[in-house]
Design a binder for these strands. Structure first.
Lengths: 195, 195, 195, 195
DNA sequence: GATGAATGAGCTTTCATTCAT
DNA sequence: AATGAATGAAAGCTCATTCAT
């Protein structure tokens, strides 16, 4: 039911996401994006009125995607330990299959503060993702599986850890594929957070 | 013993580090750096022949600084558990007192791949830091305190976690000062890595 | 009697007049005008085939409006001295109540020569206004109240003076409202032109 | 004694003045100006950091020039009536010999408010000129030759009138050269302002 | 008549780097 | 070693106008 305009909007976001991730925000030009879309520069500006806003929409898109994946896991009737493993898997699978998404988080969103300072203050453009992690954690505490500690201590561990691994892989210093580490990492996280 | 030239070189690196961290690599211009140093642009180019090379020297400088701090800890005769806490403290103290260093790692080095692809492939510009973490980990395993797992699983945890916390602080979403979390975080890391 | 098309044409002219005056010719875009009219850009081009032509129609409209006001005064059976005062009043009232008209004269017509060079050479787009001033002046000479001097010497005085005052007001340097000066100005003009 | 840089600055102002007057502010591009000066665009920006600022410097330059001309007249030991005639002559001569100056006043400064709103609020960029007119007027009142009326009523008359005449000439509607009108105009002004 | 997505040329501005002095 | 004026390519963004529907 999405209009043609809506579809085009999304295709612009996807392409930007890809190019920003691959080449960096500042090295990617609007003409680059327009060219890849077979579209004129001027017309692109009919959809997004600045490069910054385009980047902001892209992070929302990424957050929504990852958030929905974790939501699925949150809704399953399995132990917290198992959920941890599934979240790690989802994260690493995304890193492998849609690398632009995780890369966007790590290399564009986290590192170009100026770009996101206008409309994404305090992580609001990433709420959909954080909320699900929060739910996961609250559920674990409620069911008695996780220690009731400060949320940010737990969040930093979880996301810093996974982000760090993907970064190491990007630098090609990991001797094995990401999936190789799922077991170890899940256990480490569980040990860190368990009661 | 360091010649005048050597001293000037270092002051250029320090200033670049500061400006790149604060304003981002692409938003910092060579004239910016020269101006802050009361130095002409042309002369700056006598010391470093491109902006990229300057950025590369800055990451080495940062790595050396953090590496030496951890080396001090590694040489102390204390338990691995205590070492973890000290490393967390050093990291957070640096983030508070010399924010430009940690920020440089997180926001410049990690996200401007193009800039570091030439002379810093793999993570060679950051070896001095990684080596010390490696030593810390090996010692812990040797002394029987840590589980003998893949180094990168451990490294990703440690550094991703700490980086993530500093990032959260930078976004001003942390309700407390970084030091508030030292206890929790050290415990989480220890629990994750212990035998 | 005016067809629907005729009415729309006029509403387009009025809106353009307003926007060009307020924002300047070059800062006003065709989409701006269309938007204010709840009308599509494409359709606007069905009525006027270029932005320049729109500006030309707007100056004719303004000239006709002011011309008709002065015609009313010319037709009254009063002394030239009184007529001068009435003209000053009309001019200043228009500047206060329909500022877009006087502003259009001063800031759009007088200063974007390129725009009006095609179809408004000389001052033909402004004839209806000039003609009335000419009539006023001729009548005054005929009745013996005014000195018989070169028309342009008189016209420049009259219109330059009034335009200058409105400009000063626009710059907010006038300590009083325009109406405050009517007495002084009318006297000055009369003294300058009288026999 | 002016440095080479100072000389270049002035030559940029002069060329901009000329082009802005001839083609209008918006139709004149920075590359146009640079080209005429045999200079690169980038280098021009080393002298003036925006197009607007360039325009502001140009109006100051113009004001200073005309102000100094009127100052010379103010200092002469002649009647106010004679001064009026000399001011009219200076104005018309400038319009003929350095048309870019008067045109700049009329077509650029008076009509592009946005451009001058930042650093030239309330006519401050034009002070040197206004001040001299003020002195002329005060002297005339003091010596008993002029009626003591509101300064702006007098200023608007004087400058509006002269500007209006130059505008008419620019439109090529004047049947005679500007100088032809000096006698008439001076008399009109004197009659308007005299005691 | 009416729509508005699309075009593309052109604008202002920036900046790494060079080079004559 | 030191200066900083100069270059020029390229960036982000705008907008009058067209045209398929």
């Amino acid at each position: 039911m999405s209009s043609k305009k809506e579809q085009k909007r999304e295709s612009i976001i996807k392409t930007s996401l890809e190019l920003f991730s691959k080449q960096g925000f500042h090295k990617t030009t609007i003409p680059d994006i327009a060219k890849k879309l077979n579209m004129s520069v001027g017309n692109l500006y009919n959809y997004f009125k600045s490069k910054d806003i385009l980047a902001q929409e892209a992070i929302k898109y990424t957050s929504d995607y990852l958030g929905s994946k974790i939501k699925e896991i949150n809704m399953q009737n399995i132990s917290t330990k198992e959920k941890i493993k599934k979240i790690v898997e989802v994260y690493f699978n995304t890193a492998q299959e849609k690398p632009e998404m995780i890369e966007y988080f790590l290399r564009v969103y986290l590192s170009n503060r100026e770009v996101f300072s206008e409309n994404c203050e305090g992580m609001i453009c990433v709420t959909s993702f954080i909320t699900e992690i929060m739910i996961f954690f609250d559920n674990g505490v409620e069911s008695g599986e996780l220690r009731d500690q400060d949320f940010f201590s737990a969040f930093g561990l979880f996301m810093g850890y996974l982000g760090g691994m993907v970064f190491l892989q990007g630098e090609k210093v990991l001797p094995n594929e990401l999936n190789f580490y799922v077991e170890d990492i899940s256990r480490n996280i569980y040990n860190a957070l368990k009661k």
